[in-house]
């Protein structure tokens, strides 16, 4: 049923991944960084899915489910950290959270 060439889907995944990476690199607000990470995870899932579809295997979709689980866990912990950060440091600036250095 899939008539989409795999290269196109992979290209889309690459573009989305790059956008997410730019977001992580540029934004300083933790919320935006987390959102960008979501985008990147999604892009990775898309790549898996495209490859799975290309070979007619279910493994790609299984991998997407796993990525989903990872993303859910990551977001829950990440947002909790963001809340804690705000309470303690009064900011969401990711550059300000550097107490662990040295």
């Amino acid at each position: 049923m899939s008539a989409i060439p795999m290269g196109y889907a992979l290209g889309l995944a690459a573009i989305l991944f790059a956008l997410g990476l730019v977001g992580v690199l540029v934004r300083r607000n933790i919320i935006f960084v987390l959102a960008s990470i979501e985008v990147m995870l999604n892009a990775a899932g898309l790549a898996f899915l495209a490859a799975g579809a290309r070979w007619g295997r279910a493994d790609g979709q299984v991998m997407f489910v796993f990525i989903l689980a990872v993303a859910a866990a990551e977001v829950s912990v990440g947002l909790a950290i963001a809340l804690k950060c705000r309470r303690h440091l009064g900011t969401l600036d990711i550059d300000a959270i550097s107490k662990l250095k040295d």
């Binding site: 049923m1 899939s2 989409i4 889907a9 889309l12 919320i31 987390l34 959102a35 979501e38 999604n42 899932g45 898309l46 899915l49 495209a50 799975g52 579809a53 790609g60 979709q61 997407f64 489910v65 989903l68 993303a71 859910a72 977001v75 829950s76 947002l79």
Partner: peptide, 26 residues
Amino acid sequence: VFYVLGAPLIAALEVIIYAGAIMVLF
């Protein structure tokens, strides 16, 4: 896109969990 790629289940999960649950968490 997922649907078009022939993965309706994943498309549904994307809507329910990503666009639904995770975004609500955000």
